[in-house]
Design a protein around this nucleic acid. Structure first.
Length: 282
DNA sequence: TTCCAGGCGAAGA
DNA sequence: TCTTCGCATGGA
């Protein structure tokens, strides 16, 4: 490895395994040494240390890029200390060190369009199959890893190609998404600096992106931390932990925004972990 | 065989 | 505006 980056993280403020197994990101593989995947199209292996993390890669990734990717540029203690809610405080105590990763927007969007009425194992399978079909191959640690395809590679694929990979009825959504994003790529990337409401409105204009998927893309791909993805697990969490049984998505979002100002999405990830790992899980 | 999976869109009430 | 239903696929 030509590049080894170590980041010291005191007080157990990062948990590698929980973070990569929390369902927020796909295609990262657990090995005996840590987790292997891609950071900005560079294959990387990340290992947990007692006092931090170390990242090994053949390519140039700066410490700052690694830190941002791992979501270490946020002060989680301060965020959760600012909340008065006891339930979320307990969830934070239990999973402290779980962070929000900074994903590449395009891959993140396609991952979460794929996630609709799907399970995490199959989402991984679909994204791996897509990468293997037309992503760039890298020899890394004695095995071949495939990067997520570039937009130029994706735009050559048809709905039939996605269907052949097993995407089911989402094949049409993804093909149409790529076709439009190809023409609007600067606009798509600008969602990072848009305000949350207008960024969400834009994403909702795509077929196959509804309320929940839009919030996942905004939270994990564009770092809009106020986005609060509402799925079956979160509905269960709000019902069981707060006695809140409202079904209307907008009212649930309002509840979350009031309960967890500014960083509802981070609270959501902790609630999601609490429910999935505490219950039957997968 | 039937049910379910980090939902969505369209039709019906 | 709110609720219900069909949807591709594959593993349990």
């Amino acid at each position: 490895m030509k590049n080894t980056i170590k980041i010291a993280i005191p007080n157990n403020a990062f948990r590698l395994a929980d973070t990569f197994k929390s369902g927020q990101i796909f295609r990262w593989r657990e090995t005996e040494k840590g987790f292997a995947g891609f950071i900005k199209n560079a294959p990387a292996l990340i290992t947990q240390l007692p006092d931090g993390v170390v990242c090994q890669t053949d390519y140039d990734i700066s410490e700052q890029q690694l830190s941002e990717f791992l979501g270490l540029d946020l002060d989680y203690d301060s965020i959760f200390n600012a909340y008065s809610d006891e339930v979320i405080k307990q969830a934070y105590e239990k999973y402290r060190g779980l962070t929000i990763l900074k994903q590449e927007p395009l891959e993140c969007a396609i991952s979460f369009i794929t996630s609709a009425n799907n399970n995490i194992k199959r989402i991984n399978k679909h994204m791996d199959a897509l990468s293997k079909l037309c992503g760039r191959a890298y020899e890394f640690n004695g095995q071949t890893l495939y990067a997520f395809p570039e937009l130029s590679e994706l735009q050559r694929l048809t709905e039939a190609d996605f269907a052949a990979l097993g995407f089911g009825y989402r094949a049409a959504y993804i093909a149409a998404f790529i076709k439009r994003v190809k023409d609007e790529y600067p606009l798509f990337l600008s969602l990072r600096s848009s305000d949350y409401a207008s960024a969400k409105e834009y994403l909702l204009s795509f077929k196959g992106i509804g309320n929940k998927v839009a919030d996942c893309i905004l939270l994990y791909g564009f770092r809009h931390y106020e986005a609060f993805p509402v799925d079956v697990w979160i509905k269960r969490a709000l019902n069981e932990l707060y006695g809140f049984s409202e079904k209307n998505a907008q009212k649930i979002n309002e509840f979350a925004a009031q309960k967890f100002p500014n960083y509802a999405g981070i609270a959501q990830l902790y609630l999601f972990m609490l429910m999935r790992m505490g219950g039957s899980g997968q």
